[in-house]
Structure formats: structure tokens, C-alpha cells
Design a protein around this nucleic acid. Sequence first.
DNA 1: CTAACATACTAAAAGCCTTTAGTAAACTGT
DNA 2: ACAGTTTACTAAAGGCTTTTAGTATGTTAG
Lengths: 339, 339
Amino acid sequence: MSRVTIAEVARKAGVSPTAVSFTFNRPSELSPATVRRVLAVAEELGYAPNPHAKALHSSRAGAIGMLVPEDISDAFANPFYAPFVRGVGSICDELDLSLMVVSPHEGSLEKGITKAPADGFIVLGAGEKHPDVSPLYRRRVPFVIVDGDAEKAPSVNVEDEKGAHEAASRLLARGHTDILVMTFLNPRSQLVEAPFHDIASRRQSGYMRAFEEHGVAWGEAPAEAKQCSIEGGDERMKAAWSDGHRPTAVLCAADALAFGVLLAAEKRGVRVPEDLEVVGFDDVPEAALSRPALSTVRQPIREKGRIAARLLTEALDGGGSSPRSIVLPTEWVPRRTTL
Amino acid sequence: MSRVTIAEVARKAGVSPTAVSFTFNRPSELSPATVRRVLAVAEELGYAPNPHAKALHSSRAGAIGMLVPEDISDAFANPFYAPFVRGVGSICDELDLSLMVVSPHEGSLEKGITKAPADGFIVLGAGEKHPDVSPLYRRRVPFVIVDGDAEKAPSVNVEDEKGAHEAASRLLARGHTDILVMTFLNPRSQLVEAPFHDIASRRQSGYMRAFEEHGVAWGEAPAEAKQCSIEGGDERMKAAWSDGHRPTAVLCAADALAFGVLLAAEKRGVRVPEDLEVVGFDDVPEAALSRPALSTVRQPIREKGRIAARLLTEALDGGGSSPRSIVLPTEWVPRRTTL
DNA sequence: CTAACATACTAAAAGCCTTTAGTAAACTGT
DNA sequence: ACAGTTTACTAAAGGCTTTTAGTATGTTAG
């Protein structure tokens, strides 16, 4: 019933367990005949080294973890994740690693990170000062922060504030005064005092600065979608309408929300961009394909994933070098949801 | 430098390693005072049990593997994966498991499965008879097959042939005679003789049956995209045009391809659906949002992921029950890319 | 006051592999 | 024919935890 072990192979092949281990790891130490025999027996028995035992010994599991700030199921509702995973995955493919998606077990990032058998982690959406992240420093597991402030750990970020500022400026320059700003709830930020610089609030401050510069009142708090997803944006837009809001433009802190807004507008017969201009943030691949094509702020998502993974693998085997904080540029991408 | 071990905590707390283990796993065996003391020391030292050692002992890593048939980076170019991961992830969230994405290391599914520290695997896109999959039976690792034939292992599939047949019939019923059929290359099917029932060929046979029924010549081999992605579809469509093809409709074996076709048509000024009708397969979330909205065959992707994960976790801890083969229904979803 | 039993804790084994240090045999050179 | 080396292999330790079986103390009951 149980797995085939090295001892069984050794016994059946008439050699020591060491010889079996050598067969797989250092065949040059053995005579070709022995290697062949052991290989044949291993094949016959269906033996493969137990990855846990291997990892225990080498402290290498051959997997890197991606710690998402919410349930896996919710996270992947955000189209941001697919290209990000492609970026991280490209490094995994190169280095023959697996990619482990870990969510905060029982609500705690720290629990997730200590339970999961990964060699290191890419922590998404929570800065170094976040109460859930700071304990990770004492753990010996290397990690890199993505979309969060960091000094002690390597990090990858984009020009959120600047990109958001530009997007808002474009809209304001055309004279809009009733702009609905839609952000999303960071599932981790509930736990922590302001100012907590998650991407939603960074983008929000970019919008605010533009509003100030254009002398447009910021109004109350922005509309906050429950989830950063198409549904989340759709529902939040509907709620805004029910509350009597009739904005002439919507600034969305994520493309996913913008897609939801597009859908909500369509259902209501509101024409985009004539009656309602819509702007997103991220430039996920779907943005070029949406109906109408979405005007948005591009961040190099795949590149971000690649760099994060690269930084992590460097920390994993080089280790020593000083932590690098990388900030990637954003770019305004006008398409068809703006005039 | 290295991780804090149970022994260090034990020494510092003045107890045996057993007591430390009990503190975390069976605190009722210890006096409350001891538990508190050990906990304090553990906290101070930043100790957490080594997941590899734990996994070695319990043969449980707390992770389920998703074995994709190609590089991770290529796989996630297909919008099918996001909702599928959401489905699998919902079970992981429920059961506090991590989700491990594993690609065929060095080209071999078997290698991937034996290297990755996961408790079981969801194998995508390769049937039981596939030469890469059959050796897995001898390994003691439980797995479930998705989108592949299986008798001995549990499996989840959809009515590929039937769904494809319906899609083709709708098109043919309107009198099209020059339909471009676009499928994609299954990265694993290269290795194996026909008939290998991957989803691309299942869908293809559905198309063929409809062609026969309508007395329309099937022509040569269908157009095969290099990758099941938007780019793949785009490029393949361009190539078809360069070759002088001027179809009045395109049947795509995946939505991803259809999106590519839409983009290619737009660039060329071909109107959809007036000049070119386009049909996809999958009904990924983007299909409702594309320009124009995509007519397609729905398969319940998230449900598929949920069921696969459920089947796997059942095999993981119940084990005994007979393997179940589940076939999910498909449904024709007309939108705006067909007349 | 002793047998029976909890309670609080520990020593040692088991889980499976890799690696280090070492042995026995075969070979080399003189 | 013998010291020195290489080849082919093995025993045992180590990596970190959990669990089983057991010990020492204290408590209760008869």
C-alpha cells in the first residue's frame, strides 16, 4: 500500500541503500553494471525518491510559493493574476521549479508561510510593515514583496501613484466634474491602521492629487468594490446608480472593476464613452479585447512576475546581496472607453 | 543562519523536544504552565515546525498538485486556467490546502509528479493510456484525470464531442460551406499515436460529424494553432489569410483562439459577424465581454475544477471508493459573433 | 499504607533520504 | 611482491519531526 522506499529497491537489487541513492544522484561513483541493475529494479518497482525526505535533507523542495492576500478562489477572479503567474511561471519553467499558490491559512499570512513546503515566497499585496508580514523576518524563509513597501526585503512595485495621477488628469482635462472613483477593498488592510500603502490607496492618492490640481472637489470616500473582480465592479456600479449617482466618468483602480462597470453600463443602456468615460488600471490582456476596448494605465505585469521570481531565486541561492527595490514604470494607454 | 529547530526551543525552554511537539500538536498532554513557557520561547525564537520533516512523517504536505501539460507560462496564456484554478482553489481554501502548479519537468509528466511535494495530482489534458500517464499508476500518488480518458482513475470531462457538434451544426444550418476549423496543438499528443483523445481531437470529431450530416466537405486537416492562446489564434488566422483562405466562418476549439481570430479580423477590417462568423468553445468569463461578445459552447469550468479537487481530496483521505468518471454537460451560448 | 491510576513529562524509534568516512578488492608501478 | 592508488561499494550519521512506550511523581481508594 505504502510508497516504495529506497530500502526495498536496495534489497531487491542486492545492494546497499547508498548505492541506490548514488544511482540517482551520482551514478559516476558506481559501476555501469550496477547502475543498470538498480535502475531496472527501480523501474520495475515504480520507485522514485520521496520528495519530502529529499527536501528535509537538502532544505530544498523545488517549489516557490506565491502568497496571495485572499482566498485562492477570490484571487483568481482578478484577471491580473494570469499574466502575473505567467511571469513567475516562466522562471519556474526555466529553473525546473513548481509554483505553489498559498493563501492565508486561517487568516494568517504567517501560518500560510510556515505550513507550506516552499523554498521561498513571493508575498503579494502587503508591505513590510504590515503586522502579518513583519513576523516573517524572523522566520528563515526568504521572500520578496510585490505591491507593498519594503526596505529590508527585496521588492517589486510599479508607479501606482504616478500612473493613477496621469489617468485622472486625462479625464479631468476634459472637464469632468462628476467622476466616480472606484477602488477595491484590500482584504489585508482591514486589519491595520492608515496609512497603509496598499496599491488601492496608492492609486487613490494619485487620483486625489490630480483632483486637487484641477480644483475639483474630491467628495467623500471613493466607491469601494467588495472584490477586485468583474462581478465586484459590476455590483458596485449598480449600487452607485441605485444610490442616485450619475457620474460622467469612472476611474477604476483596476481593470477588473472597469470591466464590471462596462457590463453594468451596457445593461443599463448607458453609452461608453459618450455618456460615460471609463478608465482602468493594469492593462490586463483582456483590456485590448473588451467591449469597448479599455483605456487604462499599463503596468508590465508579466515582467513584474518575472522580476519577483528572479529576485526570489537569487535570494534563494546567492543569498548575500543587498535587497533590491525595483519600481517598474506605468504608461497611459488610451483606447475606446475614453473620448 | 539556518532555521530554528525543535531542539533549540526545547533546550531554551528546559524541556524535551517531545514537550515542544506536544505544545503544538497535543497541548492537553502538558500542563498549561509548560505550554505557555514553550510557546513564549518559540515565539521569541521565531520557531515553526519544519514542513518537510512534518510531511515526511505524516506523508501529508498539505498541497495538491495541478499537473499542466505544458510550461506554466504557456498554460496560463489560456484564459481557461483562471476559472479552473478558481474551482480547484475553492476546495483548497475550504480544506486549508495549498495549490501547486507543476509542469512536466524535463518534458516528463512522471518526473514532475515524483519531484513535486504534493499529496496528489490533478492531471490535465492527458488520458490514462497516454504513455506519460500510465506509469503513474505504479507510483502510489493518487491522481485524477481532467480532460482525458480514464477508467482506472477518477476523471472529470465534459461533452466535448456533443458541444462541438452543436456549435458546428448552428453554423452549417445557416448555409456556410467555407468554414475554417481551428484547433490547437496539444503539447503532449505529439508523442503518441492516433487515436489519442485529447480535447482538441474530441472537439474536432464533433465538428466532423456535423459536417458529414450537412454534406459539407471536411477538406484537409484543420488549422492548428501553435499555442492555445489569444496570440496563437491571432497568428494562425493571419497565416490562414496569407495562404489565401477567405472563410465565411471560423470554428475554434477554444475561446482563446476565437479571441485571437476576433483581433485578427478587426485588424484586417473584416466585420464580425457580418463577413465572418466566429464560434468558440469553453465560455471563459472574457467571452461575455469581448468585442463583439463571443458565441460559444459553455462548459462549467469552475465546477470542473471543484469536482476534480473534490474527487482528489476524497481519494486522498477516503481512498477506497471506486473511481468515478464524471462527464459535465455543455451548452450552446449564442452571443454576437454569430448571426 | 499500599495498589491502582492519573498526570506530566522523556527517551528512543520511525519516517526516508543523502552524505561522509571508511573498507575491501583490484590494479599500478617498480 | 609490496606500497600506493583507484574503484566499487557500504555502514552509520544526520536532517527534523511525530509518536509510542515508558518513567517518575502525585493522587485517590480501599
